[in-house]
Design a protein around this nucleic acid. Structure first.
Ligand code: FES
Ligand code: FES
Lengths: 146, 146
DNA sequence: ATAATAAAAGATATTTTTGTCTTTATTTTT
DNA sequence: AAAAATAAAGACAAAAATATCTTTTATTAT
């Protein structure tokens, strides 16, 4: 498996893209986003609509409309996106799928897994949505295969 | 999401259970396994048949038959189970779902994620199937909710 | 006002994952 | 040889995730 659902992967790639394209206050359309993060347009549309409802990004209809991020939003951790899309399983779930990860009734992998899960959480809360804008603009990092 | 598919979670829990019950050379039936790792019997049956075909565990039909593990198998890393069931995405996959995680064309999360993925791989190759037998027998760790 | 643009929403479809039920094959015990 | 036990296999079903297509609503520009 992967750390994130496919939906969440799309969401993260798209939000990174939007961040790097709208830091100057402009907007970007779903077609362009979908093309540049290599995701199905309408499916991604729903994902972004959902994130918009949840206040993670903003959108405007009509000509010159599109999705965009307020400067303030660029400071948010990507953990916000992950939990909005995938819930909190990645932050609190048991490695072996037990209903409640617990210190008192641990599964065999609990003690080792706990550390890994903490590292994941640390990474997701420490990295912000806007943190890669420069590198993305420079093409030093990518959101889709070349 | 979770680190492993549900199928893989069932597999790991079941193999741990089988390990702890057959270290003495006896065998254990699918009904008992399913009950003790809280998984759907027939579904788990297929999973174990598959692992059996792949040589990770063994089985015997007929009265007093069941699933069991050779002492040698107890030394194998649980990474073998994970890759047999879920493939190698957890060991090599990109955090953002790009087709090829790459050092030359990294995604935004690559550098941080690489470390985490290495820790996961390290844990999965370092822990063996039989390593928890004693604790399981003592009830200090669990394979299903109490 | 009208037309054009773009997101939002709705309906439907496909694929993958997860789960159930039934039958068959193999082995052991009697 | 017959009966019982047990895994293996096959067919089918339900649920969840992923994807597509169409219609509606809001906004802007003319
Ligand atoms: S109980 Fe399984 S990871 Fe904590
Ligand atoms: S390219 Fe994404 S994790 Fe390596």
């Amino acid at each position: 498996m992967s750390l994130f659902s496919k939906t969440c992967e799309y969401a993260l790639r798209a939000v990174f893209y939007i961040a790097s394209k709208t830091a100057d206050g402009s907007k970007v359309g779903i077609k362009e986003i979908a093309r540049n993060v290599n995701s199905p347009e309408h499916f991604l549309g729903k994902i972004l609509q959902d994130l918009s409802r949840k206040g993670i990004l903003d959108s405007a209809k009509g000509p010159n409309g599109g999705f965009f991020l307020h400067p303030k939003s660029l400071k948010r951790p990507i953990a916000d996106i992950v939990s909005a899309v995938d819930g909190d399983n990645v932050f609190t779930g048991c490695a072996l799928g037990l209903a409640h990860c617990s210190e008192r009734n641990p599964c065999p992998l609990h003690h080792e897994f706990k550390k890994i899960r903490n590292n994941i959480a640390k990474m997701l809360t420490a990295t912000t949505i806007g943190q890669f804008n420069k590198e993305l603009t420079l093409g030093k990092i990518l959101l889709k295969e070349v």
